[in-house]
Structure formats: structure tokens, C-alpha cells
């Protein structure tokens, strides 16, 4: 029995029309059907957070969604974060500058989680950052430098917003 469906998903701005098996998880769709392997799979039962992506702007665990459920949706993955000229996003740059990653396997999920979190909460304190990260497991870092990177990124993003606003005013 193979239950299939043709879906149309926009991932990082590109539309993908594909016939897929309906039991395929969104994580496997991203990684193995459209070759966006930046999204990682660490537990496949919704605990580790490595597979976090944005679906219509919201951070979700892509191992706990069927790809067919993303039909018609906008999906954003870590591959979209770099800007023109491959410049790192301020959040990525903050992770580099603060040594916020070691093996890098959990990193994309953490970046996507923080991307949404910092939109809702641009000026978080350390406790809030730690709570936001509590659904992402990292075995390498002990979280300290991830938290530092997130706080640094928040500060950089606030400055960026300030600059943009300043330009608009002038």
C-alpha cells in the first residue's frame, strides 16, 4: 500500500511540486527529496530539536510534521539565512564569534528556534534565552556559549533594526 499525494511547498522562496508518500516526514522531505540537508535529524520523536524549521514563520519540529501537511506552506530552513554575497546573518555571525557551536549538528535547529524567538522577544534576558533553548539538546557545548551567542545576536539585531529605522527617518 503506497499512499501518495502531490504537494506544493515553498521552501526558502523556491516552489517545489512533488509527488510524495503521505507518511513522509517534513524532515525527510527537506533532506532527502529536495536535498536541503542543513536540517538535521537527531531523535525523530520530537525531543532533541535538531530538525527545527520555520513553517509559515513558526518554529516547529519537522520530524513531527508530515510533508503533506506542509502543502501550500512556506518553509524556511537554515540554508536561507545567509544574505547577499553569502554574508552570515547576524545570528550566525554571533554564533561564530562566541564559539556557540562545536560539532554543529544541533546548530541549525537552534538557529531556527532563535530566529523566531528573537522576533517575538528582541530584548531577552538570559533566563528567557535559556527557556527558549530548553527544547534543543546539545551534547557538546554545555549551552553556555550558545546562550552568549543568542544574547549577542539579540543585541546585534536590535542595532540593525535601529540602523534601518534611522535610515528611514533620514
Amino acid at each position: 500500500m503506497t499512499d501518495t499525494r502531490t504537494i506544493s511547498v515553498t521552501v526558502n522562496g523556491s516552489r517545489h511540486d512533488l509527488e510524495i508518500e503521505t507518511r513522509l516526514t517534513l524532515a525527510d522531505f527537506l533532506r532527502h527529496q529536495i536535498s536541503l540537508t542543513g536540517t538535521h535529524v537527531g531523535c525523530e520523536h520530537g525531543v532533541c530539536g535538531a530538525c527545527t524549521v520555520l513553517v509559515d514563520g513558526q518554529a516547529v519540529r519537522s520530524c513531527l510534521m508530515l510533508a503533506v501537511q506542509a502543502d501550500g506552506a512556506m518553509v524556511t530552513t537554515v540554508e536561507s539565512m545567509t544574505g547577499e554575497n553569502e554574508q552570515l546573518h547576524p545570528l550566525q555571525q554571533a554564533f561564530h564569534d562566541n564559539h556557540g557551536l562545536q560539532c554543529g549538528f544541533c546548530t541549525p535547529g537552534i538557529l531556527m528556534t532563535l530566529l523566531e524567538f528573537l522576533q517575538h522577544n528582541p530584548s531577552p534576558n538570559e533566563t528567557e534565552v535559556r527557556e527558549a533553548l530548553s527544547g534543543s539538546l546539545c551534547r557538546c557545548t554545555g549551552y553556555q556559549k550558545i546562550v552568549a551567542a543568542a544574547l549577542d545576536a539579540a543585541s546585534r539585531l536590535r542595532q540593525d533594526v535601529g540602523k534601518t529605522a534611522g535610515r528611514r527617518e533620514s
Partner: peptide, 17 residues
Amino acid sequence: GRLEDRALLTGKGRYVD
């Protein structure tokens, strides 16, 4: 800062899967 970071931060790491 680490030389490894850019690939790992941009989803261009290459793990076995």
C-alpha cells in the same frame, strides 16, 4: 574563531546522512 563554523552555520556541513 573556528575555521569549521561557516559551513556548519549555513547548513553546508556534510554529515554522513
